[in-house]
């Protein structure tokens, strides 16, 4: 549905002799910013929230853990879940099973700074089938995982997919809304971020039903491409200028192996 991405993809057709080089760019280093990554779901009752800081572009780590934060989530009936530090910026609570149709509030305190966010958990939307498709585009085989389901009518639904390939950590894949297909039989076509699923790969897909603000965050992030006129930080649902997001979702995981078709 994203025409611009399709169009940019088609540019590849007319590039005759394009070439790619690694270059050195002198980038400024901004003051470190707090990053909060809170992805809570009902897949298990063990939940992790990561708190870190941004690092210089040239750093050989991709973030700097914060170990002195106080992290809590409160549900709408007032029940409080305290997260305790387990290392590498991760805070854990092993006895927190969220339930749908609840709003959860996050507070993270670091020194004397306070960051807050809230997220609503919605009912899970079951899928009808999951399958594999192989498409040959300009001579290369690409594999996609197709999830078919019926979108609940007359309500805005937002879907997020993360993928783990061959036992590696889950990575963001894509988000969808139902702006163009509310209430219809919908197929979501999923691949990993690098679009390089190969024969024999063992894949776990995590499908999450997210709220609008979380969708907005990921939609902003996935719309940044080299053709963007002005890339910017995605709009976070966390207060006080923190980067990252806080999401509580209904989720399910599916495993499959890429096989020849």
């Amino acid at each position: 549905m994203n025409l611009q991405r399709l169009y940019i993809f088609l540019i590849a057709l007319v590039i005759f002799t394009s070439c790619e080089d690694i270059i050195e760019i002198d980038l400024n280093t901004a003051n470190p910013k707090v990053v909060i990554e809170g992805d809570i779901s009902n897949i298990s009752s063990a939940q992790t929230i990561r708190v870190s800081r941004t690092v210089a572009f040239t750093a050989t780590i991709n973030s700097e853990p914060i170990d002195n934060a106080s992290v809590q989530v409160r549900d709408q009936s007032g029940r409080n879940y305290v997260f305790s530090y387990v290392g590498n910026g991760n805070y854990q609570n092993n006895n927190f099973m969220p339930t749908a149709n609840n709003t959860y509030n996050l507070t993270v305190a670091i020194d004397d700074e306070l960051f807050e966010a809230s997220s609503r958990m919605y009912d899970y939307v079951d899928i009808d089938s999951i399958g594999l498709v192989e498409e040959n585009l300009f001579g290369t085989d690409y594999y996609f995982i197709n999830l078919k389901f019926t979108d609940p009518i007359n309500q805005a639904n937002y879907y997020k997919y993360n993928l783990s390939v061959n036992g590696k950590p889950f990575q963001f894949s894509t988000v969808f809304n139902d702006k163009f297909n509310d209430g219809l039989n919908v197929t979501h076509q999923i691949t990993n971020a690098n679009n390089d699923l190969a024969l024999g790969d063992s894949v776990i897909i995590r499908r999450q039903i997210i709220d609008q603000n979380v969708y907005k965050y990921w939609s902003d992030l996935q719309s940044i491409n080299p053709g963007s006129a002005a890339p910017a930080n995605p709009k976070s649902n966390i207060s006080n200028g923190a980067l990252g997001y806080f999401s509580v979702s209904s989720a399910k995981e599916f495993g499959l192996t890429i096989f020849g078709l």
Partner: peptide, 24 residues
């Protein structure tokens, strides 16, 4: 152009932190 002035990680993905519009 707008280039990043830092980086961080969300959902296993390196993400760029932007500050100034068209500062590069």
């Amino acid at each position: 152009v707008t280039f990043p002035s830092g980086k961080y990680v969300v959902d296993g993905r390196t993400t760029y932190y932007y500050t100034e519009r068209n500062g590069y």
